[in-house]
Simulated assay, not measured.
Amino acid sequence: MSEPAVSEPTKARTPGAKRAGPGEYLFELAKVNHILGGPDYSTANGACVEGDRMIVGLMRMAAGTGAEPHSHPNEQWIYILEGTFRATIGDKPVEAGPGALVYIPAGTIHSGGATSDGDVLFFTVKDASHSLHGIKA
């Protein structure tokens, strides 16, 4: 049995993101356009690449900055590479350091940011049912 065809948008769902095209299999994130992770609610910025079913980003938040409460209709994973990330997901406080993986269910209001000790560098993945950007709460 074959899998259903996936429609291929001609442009990225997220303004400024790199859309993976036919035959593109490697992306040097340092050379990909850097965008804001949430233009009206977050200081996160970095590279974003979109495929047919997933969106990935390598984002940085400067020390002492972060994201105001927001949500998005797609679920999200955040893998911490550097720094300490303090967040509230729903009503639960979370503190994550390097090597930790944070899960944010679709539609859940959340906020978070880097501690004053240093920047947070994180790799994030979302399903492509919506863009990288969320909606400020």
Results as ranks from 00 to 15, higher is better:
Ile89Thr: 05
Asp117Glu: 15
Asp52Phe: 08
Leu29Asp: 12
Gly134Pro: 07
Pro105Ala: 05
Glu28Pro: 14
Gly16Asn: 04
Glu8Cys: 07
Pro73Met: 08
Thr88Ser: 11
Arg53Val: 13
Lys136Glu: 12
Ala114Lys: 01
Val94Ser: 08
Val94Asn: 02
Glu28Arg: 14
Pro15Val: 11
Asn74Gly: 11
Phe85Ala: 08
Glu75Cys: 01
Asn33Pro: 15
Gly118Phe: 06
Ala30Gly: 11
Pro4Glu: 02
His130Met: 11
Asp117Val: 09
Asp40Tyr: 01
Ala114Trp: 07
Asp127Cys: 09
Ile89Cys: 07
Asn74His: 00
Arg19Met: 11
Ser129Lys: 11
His133Phe: 00
Ile80Lys: 02
Pro69Gln: 09
Leu26Trp: 14
Val102Ser: 00
Gly90Met: 06
Gly46Gln: 10
Ser7Glu: 14
Asn45Arg: 13
Thr108Glu: 12
Gly21His: 08
Ile78Pro: 03
Ala30Ser: 13
Pro93Gly: 09
Pro73Ser: 03
Ser111Lys: 14
Asp52Gln: 04
Leu101Gln: 07
Tyr41Asp: 10
Ala17Val: 10
Lys92Val: 10
Met61Asp: 15
Lys136Ser: 12
Gly66Met: 03
Pro69Asp: 04
Asp127Tyr: 05
Ile109Val: 15
Gly83Pro: 11
Glu68His: 09
Lys18Cys: 11
His110Trp: 01
Gly64Ser: 07
